[in-house]
Every structure is written in structure tokens, then in C-alpha cells.
Write a protein that binds this DNA or RNA. Structure first.
Length: 813
RNA sequence: GCCGGCGUAGUCCAACGGCAGAGACGACUCCCUUAAGAGGAGUUCAGUGCGGGUUCGAAUCCCGCCGCCGGCACCA
């Protein structure tokens, strides 16, 4: 056999092959997608990266499989737009400015230039003409425009709110910049501080955001968003404050049925009524407590481990259901940011209230009984369902009905009624940072808060700003920026110096890709209509909540203003799992990135792409262990040899078994690519390559051609090279995906497994499609089965078509 | 604490309720090679985290534990 094959063949050189095709593709414009073609348009987006400096293995894990899926869809006859851009504003650029004395813009540009090269190195089929970069004025002017539109519609507003404050850096931090209660930059414990901030009213859309109609999203992500929004049904009721005519304390409860057990109330330390109602003799203690709570580090404050502290205000409220005077306390286990910042405390039926009551010797009164019998005392709170007791006219009512009945009664009395609240808060978009979109607002002593007129957009971020370790917002120190004139009255005025959260940038960037240079609106609707909404969106599971929720909100708001024709930007979403290295998700900020470069240099981008897709199910993520890359590299080498070796074809024409293997592989790879099961698709191709290496004749050549086509989405340079060397016309990436022929894939011979009581006793070769009766007959005739029967009586026989026969017996009685 | 997800050869992972193994890493043997490297052929290895249940038949479905990962967490 050796003599018929071996002619000295050229070795696979990934470096040469990849450089050659990257150059050719970019000069031929292979990846440039027209807006109109004879194929149906398909808009496929994978989340753009933050330009942190380089694409690490984690980025490749996100991008390469998505690129393979995009290439597959093209071969399946779609005109696929697969764009890329950069989430270019953000804190690391400012940190770099301080550390390296390099301007954030320069640092960002340098990083983007390098990362674009790396995308090319990966062989990603990106249409770079459509690149979006969020730190350019032509992009962020539309952030500002959206802000102004939201302001007009009442969806943007300014309010005083407690924010995360780093006392050392003198700045507000976003929630995601607070790591375990500490500033991510200097590790100083973060405190809460009240500041005037800009918000987007996402809570207006809370209910609609809970609906996921018509979108194909992973269950996991929908559940996470639903929990984040946190809808709670209950009642909002208020009790009067004794001795303060007209003052009432509003509270929310999910358990109005326990209202007769409300033996005290607790206000959050920040509650506005605290100062008003505290009596003279309690004032000192309350002031001390409130001050301490407000200065307390967030880590301490929210720890569930600590004791539930509190102090009396000396004031009393009237429980308008029992008619009793109940004491009003201040306690920091009540959050000012949830509900109304006040609760009715029902110690008998709430664990936290029970603990608080015990600690401060407050009355615990059972009003819900599991079985209707009253207990004289309680050693633990009962939080379950039951029957209302000690509840006046409601005695004997089941809790489920009681909740509605009490809420209705509150409504009848004019002191409240049924209510729904959400855990979701409005979106705080202000950041005291330089490297972001300036909020287009001017403060005038005479006119107040004045929006920058649309015609004056963009409000350009000034280039020169002082970046110092002392912190604070560099933008606020740029006098030439801050000083301006009021657009309304022309008098001197000051600009807002806060910039926008970068999640604003990413909440609408997919509308920009179709025509990123368009300067009349945030989106060129004419072109946008050909693509939007996004048919497929892929990205990391870490964005399951914030980014994806904000993007849905902004779509709905823009739709309601008439700028979009859909309310869900992403029709289909899939998330890759995390690449874990050293026990943590790989990321630049965690300092555990692995560079792909050395692997690319040694094995080529195609081997690395294949390996990343081969490691395991994409949606599960994986631990990074480079050892296995040898395997995919060897595989490509084997296919290379198959592809370029000259084999004597005299020995054969078509071979049914080979054709069958080819078509079964087409079927498998197609289904796996549709379902993002890249790992099993690659295994199937490896299997086929082994089969083909043993085959001869025309089936072999046909099989190799097919394998090259199947490999094209996974290993684009490699497949292109083999396609060319084997005399293929045009680019392999412009070929049609191989057609699956079920007739050729059909198996003719099967092995019938014969079981007796579930244990395998025999295997009989048989023709596929054997009728059940015949299969049963064959099984019962099997000498081995007969031996296993050993005098038992056949009870029944289960036949599974083309698979097995199970003979079920019973004991001879 | 609550809500998800996952536990299969030494390792990464496959397996419409139907023969536990597709593929890969590693290890070992052999072939090729002056040698090294790189190839090639083959061998090895688990009864599916634990305990119950449903079923003719369970890795797969159900219940209860244990472990790991992720999300939320004093949310009234």
C-alpha cells in the first residue's frame, strides 16, 4: 500500500497559509457585506469588546465560534452582516492615563489598532467598513441626542440619590466597580453618599421587561432578568403618626394578612420622617444612630451576619386595624431604597422582625396559625400559609384570601390598597468621570437646568484634562469646558461635568453598524430596516442582566417615541460560558489573561479556533488548558495530507460505506452548528477524516471535498488553501453548504441487540427496517437468548425498531 | 438563605429512556527515521457523586442528600 501512495508532499504551514489568505481576503473585500443581495439578509452580532489592549483567549472563545456560525449561515445562503466595534469609553483608559501618563484617547487608539490586527489574525469575517467606536464624537453625539429625547419624554430626570462613593478617589462608583464593598481601584471601603444624579426611568418599563414574547433567549438569562426586576405583589398601606396630624407612614407589605400582628414599625435611617417625629428625649440617640448608619461602609451595612440594630424614636403610630398605638423604631435593616423605606413589623411571621423584636423586647403576637389553633407564645416565626387568628373580623380567613381582603379593606378606608413594587431601580447614568459621553446639560442661575439644544450637539469632550492620582473628575477641572453661556438667556452658565455610564453606549450600538457614518439620526432607518432587529446575538453570560436589560429598555423607549419598529433588539440570544484560568474567569482586570499569540505562532489561528470550539460545550465555558491544542493541530495535518496526496484511483469507484459516512457527517455537522454544539461537530469531522484516510476511489475524493467545505467555517484559512489546491473555483467561503442526502446516509445493516430482562445476551446482524414481528422471531430463535431464558416463561417482548429486542420473563409458578 | 446549572475513564468531554464511548489529551507498544523532530498503526482506562423511586429497560425522568460553579441576597 505504501508504494501506491507516497510521493513527497508539502507540509502544512499555518503561518504561510494564514498570512496569504488574510491578505487576499482583505484586498478582495470578501467580508464586505452588501446591504442588498439576491440572498436574504441576516444580522448576526457578537458583543463588542472593551479595548483593554489585546484579544486574549477569552475573547477568542467568544468570537471564533460566533465567526464560525456566521460563516456557516453564509454558506447556507444568507447575506450575513457580521460587524465589530469597540466599547471604547470607560475607566481603565483613565487609570492608564494616570499610570502611564498617556492620554485615554491615545491609549484607546493604540489598543484598538492592535486588537483590529488580532481580529484579522483570527480570520474573523468582519465587515470593517461598518466599525462602531463609541468614543468618537460622531457616535456619542447620539448618546446625547437619546438623552435629550428621554428628557423630553420624562424618561430622564435628575434626583438626589444615595450613590457608591469612594472617599479616597473622591468619586462615585458604578455598582460593578464596587468589588466586595470596596473600590476596585484603591480598595477603600465604599460609603453611601447623597448626590444629584441623572437617571433613566427604566422602572416605567418593568412590566414589559418581564415579558419575553417572541424572543428566543436562554431560560437562564430570562430567569436572571426576572429575578433582577423582582416583581412583588402586595399592598401599600399607611398608618397615622400619633400627635402629628396629617403625617402618615406609608409602607409596603407582601403579607397584608398579617397586619393584626404588626406590633411596631421600623423606618430606614434615611427616611425623611425620622427627623420630624423623633421626640426630644430620643433625639440624641437617634441622631447618633442615623449618622453612624449613613457613614457605615456598604459591606458592613448589608452583611446578613450582623445584628439587627435599631433605636426608638419615641413616636408612635396607630395600627388602624387593631386600633393600637405601636412604637416607631429606626433600624438599618430596613432599606431606604426598597418600597417606601418603612415597614410594619410583624415579628410573629417574619424572621427579621422576630429577631429584632427579641433583641429589643417588643411584642410578638401570633396572627397566622397553621391549623387555626392559637398558640400562647412563639419560639420561632411562622412564615407559611394558614388561617388568620386574633384578627378581628378576618378571623378564620385563609391567608391567601386574607391578603386580598385586608388590601381591599385598606382601600375602603382610604389608607392604601393593593400594590405592586419592583426590586428594579431606575438606571443611574451619571459618572464623575472624564472618559465618557458628556451629559448635554447646562446649569444657569436664572433658567435652572437647561438642555443643550440639539443643533449644538455633540458636546465634545475636551482633549486636555488633568489626570492625577488625587482623583475627582478631571472634566470638572477643565474651565474652558465648564464655562459656557446659557442657551436660553445667553448669560454665563456652567456645563454638567458628569459623563454617562458606558452601558448607555452599548444599549443601542447595534442600530449604528448598518450605517455608522450616518449623520442625520442615530440610525439610518432605510438601511436599518434591511437588517434590524438582530437575528442572532452572542456574548458572555456575564452580561445576562445589565447590558441586555438596558438594551431592551432603550429599544422599547425608542419604539414608543416612533424611532424603532420593534421593542426587542435581539430576537435570538446565546451565551458562551466563561473561560476560567487559575480558578477565575479570564479577564484583563483580574490579571489572569492568556495571550493567544504564542499558540497562533506555533499552531496557527485555525488550530486554536478549532481547539477552542472543541474543548467542550460552548454554552458551558471551560477551564483553559492549552495541552489539547496538539489534537486539533494534528487533525488539520491529517486532513492536509488527505487533501494534497495523490492516491491511485484505479482501485475503486464509489464506495457505499464511505458515501454513508460522508452524508452522516454532513447531517451531524449541520445540526450541531445550528445548535452551537461545535465540539461534537468537530469530533464528527475527525471521525470522517479517519474513514477517508482508509478509503480509495471517487468516494474518497468526493468525501475530502465535502470535508473541506464542512471545515470552512471552523478553519477558514486552512479550508481556503485546500480548496484552492484541489482545484476548487472561487472562494470556499462562497460555496454552498454540502447537501445532505438521507438516502445515501441510510444505514442498510444494523446490529439487533437481544436482551433478556434488560441484560444483553446476543447481537444479531440484520437488515435495517426489519418488521417488529420478524425481529421478535429472530430474537427468540437466538441460541444465546434461549440459554439465558433457562426455563423461564416469556411474559412479553419489547421491540425497538432497528435497535433491540427485550425479552421480559416471569418466574414459572 | 433563595434561584439556576453541572457531577460519566488519569484529564477534557460524547451518548432521541434502548449495546456506557463519538472525538481529543495523557500513558504504553509497534512502524517510519542515522538521530532528533514530525508522522502513522494500535493498546490501555469508567459502569455514570451518594441513597431511594418510576419503567421491560435509567447516565438520561422523579424525590432526598453531598460536592462544585454561577446569579440574587436584611427586598418587607
Amino acid at each position: 500500500m505504501t508504494s501506491e501512495v507516497k510521493k513527497k508532499t508539502e507540509r502544512y504551514s499555518p503561518q504561510a497559509v494564514e498570512a496569504k489568505w488574510q491578505k487576499r481576503w482583505s484586498s478582495s473585500g470578501l467580508h464586505e457585506t452588501p446591504n442588498v443581495s439576491d440572498k436574504p439578509n441576516f444580522y448576526f452580532v457578537t458583543m463588542y469588546p472593551y479595548p483593554s489592549g489585546e484579544l486574549h483567549v477569552g475573547h477568542w472563545y467568544a468570537m471564533a465560534p460566533s465567526d464560525a456560525a456566521a460563516r456557516f449561515l453564509r454558506m447556507r445562503g444568507h447575506n450575513v452582516l457580521f460587524p465589530m466595534g469597540f466599547d471604547a469609553f470607560g475607566l481603565p483608559a483613565e487609570n492608564a492615563a494616570i499610570k502611564r501618563k498617556m492620554h485615554p484617547a491615545a491609549w484607546t487608539e493604540k489598543n484598538m489598532a492592535h486588537m483590529r490586527d488580532q481580529f484579522r489574525m483570527m480570520g474573523a469575517s468582519i465587515d470593517w467598513r461598518r466599525e462602531v467606536v463609541t468614543c468618537y464624537p460622531e457616535y456619542y453625539r447620539w448618546n446625547q441626542w437619546i438623552f435629550l429625547k428621554f428628557l423630553e419624554k420624562g424618561l430622564a430626570y435628575r434626583a438626589n440619590a444615595p450613590v457608591n462613593w469612594c472617599p479616597k478617589d473622591q468619586t462615585v462608583l458604578a455598582n460593578e466597580q464596587v468589588i466586595a464593598g470596596r473600590c476596585e481601584r484603591c480598595e477603600t471601603p465604599v460609603v453611601k453618599r447623597d448626590l444629584e444624579q441623572w437617571f433613566f426611568r427604566i422602572t416605567d418599563y418593568a412590566d414589559e421587561l418581564l415579558r419575553y414574547d417572541g424572543i428566543d433567549w436562554p431560560e437562564r438569562v430570562r430567569v436572571m432578568q426576572t429575578n433582577w426586576i423582582g416583581r412583588s405583589e402586595g399592598a401599600e398601606i399607611s398608618f397615622a403618626v400619633d400627635g402629628h396630624a396629617g403625617e402618615r407612614i406609608k409602607f409596603f407589605t407582601t403579607r397584608p394578612d398579617t397586619i393584626y400582628g404588626a406590633t411596631f414599625m421600623v423606618l430606614a435611617p434615611e427616611h425623611p420622617l425620622v427627623a420630624k417625629i423623633t421626640t426630644v428625649d430620643h433625639r440624641a440617640a437617634v441622631d447618633t444612630y442615623v449618622t453612624r448608619a449613613r457613614n457605615m461602609a456598604e459591606i458592613e451595612r448589608t452583611s446578613t451576619e450582623r445584628k439587627r440594630t435599631g433605636v426608638e424614636t419615641g413616636a408612635f403610630a396607630r395600627n388602624e386595624f387593631t386600633g393600637e398605638r405601636i412604637p416607631i423604631w429606626v433600624g438599618d435593616y430596613v432599606l431606604s431604597t426598597y418600597g417606601t423605606g418603612a415597614i410594619m413589623a410583624v415579628p410573629a411571621h417574619d424572621e427579621r422582625d422576630f429577631d429584632f423584636a427579641n433583641r429589643h423586647r417588643l411584642e410578638i403576637r401570633e396572627v397566622i396559625s397553621p391549623d387555626g389553633a392559637e398558640q400562647p407564645s412563639m419560639s420561632a416565626p411562622y412564615v407559611g400559609e394558614g388561617v388568620m387568628v386574633r384578627s378581628g373580623p378576618f378571623n378564620g380567613t385563609r391567608t391567601e384570601a386574607g391578603r386580598r381582603a385586608v388590601a381591599e379593606e385598606a382601600k375602603r378606608r382610604g389608607i392604601g390598597g393593593p400594590s405592586v413594587i419592583y426590586r428594579l431601580r431606575d438606571w443611574l447614568i451619571s459618572r464623575q468621570r472624564y472618559w465618557g459621553t458628556p451629559i448635554p446639560i447646562i446649569y444657569c442661575d436664572d433658567c435652572g437646568v437647561v438642555p443643550v439644544p440639539e443643533k449644538d450637539l455633540p458636546v465634545v469632550l475636551p482633549r486636555d484634562a488633568p489626570f492625577t492620582v488625587e482623583g475627582g473628575n478631571p472634566l470638572a477641572k477643565v474651565e474652558s469646558f465648564v464655562r459656557t453661556t446659557c442657551p436660553r438667556c445667553g448669560k454665563p452658565a456652567r456645563r454638567e461635568t458628569d459623563t454617562m455610564d458606558t452601558f448607555v453606549d452599548s444599549s443601542w450600538y447595534v442600530y449604528r453598524y448598518p450605517d455608522p457614518k450616518y449623520d442625520r439620526l442615530f440610525m439610518n432607518a432605510e438601511v436599518g430596516r434591511k437588517w434590524l432587529p438582530v437575528a442572532r446575538y452572542t456574548g458572555g453570560i456575564e452580561h445576562a442582566i445589565l447590558h441586555l436589560l438596558y438594551a431592551r429598555f432603550v429599544a422599547k423607549a425608542l419604539r414608543d417615541m416612533g424611532y424603532l419598529w420593534f421593542g426587542e433588539p435581539f430576537k435570538h440570544l446565546r451565551n458562551q460560558g466563561n473561560i476560567v484560568f487559575g480558578g477565575r474567569k479570564m479577564s484583563k482586570s483580574r490579571g489572569n489573561v492568556q495571550a493567544p499569540d504564542e499558540y497562533v505562532a506555533r499552531y496557527g489561528a485555525d488550530s486554536l479556533r478549532l481547539f477552542l470550539m472543541f474543548m467542550g460545550p460552548w454554552t458551558d465555558g471551560s477551564d483553559w488548558d492549552a495541552a489539547g491544542i496538539e489534537g486539533t493541530y494534528r487533525f488539520l495535518n491529517r486532513v492536509w495530507s488527505l487533501g494534497i496526496e495523490k492516491v491511485d484511483e484505479a482501485s475503486g469507484g464509489r464506495d457505499e460505506a464511505v458515501d454513508r459516512a460522508v452524508h452522516r457527517t454532513i447531517q451531524k455537522v449541520t445540526a450541531d452548528l445550528e445548535g452551537y454544539h461545535f465540539n461534537t461537530a468537530i469530533a464528527a469531522m475527525m471521525e470522517l477524516s479517519t474513514t477517508l484516510s482508509r478509503a480509495r476511489g471517487t468516494s474518497r475524493e468526493y468525501g475530502i471535498d465535502t470535508l473541506v467545505l464542512l471545515l470552512a467555517p471552523f478553519a477558514p484559512h486552512f479550508a481556503e488553501e485546500l480548496w484552492e489546491r484541489r482545484g476548487g473555483r472561487g472562494s470556499v467561503h462562497q460555496q454552498s453548504w454540502p447537501a445532505f442526502d438521507p438516502a445515501l446516509a441510510a444505514v442498510k445493516e444494523i446490529t439487533l441487540v437481544v436482551q433478556v430482562d434488560g441484560k444483553v445476551r446476543d447481537r444479531i446482524p440484520a437488515a435495517a427496517g426489519l418488521p417488529q414481528a420478524q425481529a421478535q422471531e429472530m430474537a427468540l430463535a437466538s441460541p444465546r437468548a434461549k440459554a439465558a431464558l433457562d426455563g423461564r416463561i416469556v411474559d412479553r417482548v419489547v421491540v425497538v425498531q432497528d435497535r433491540l429486542v427485550n425479552i421480559v420473563t416471569k418466574q414459572r409458578s
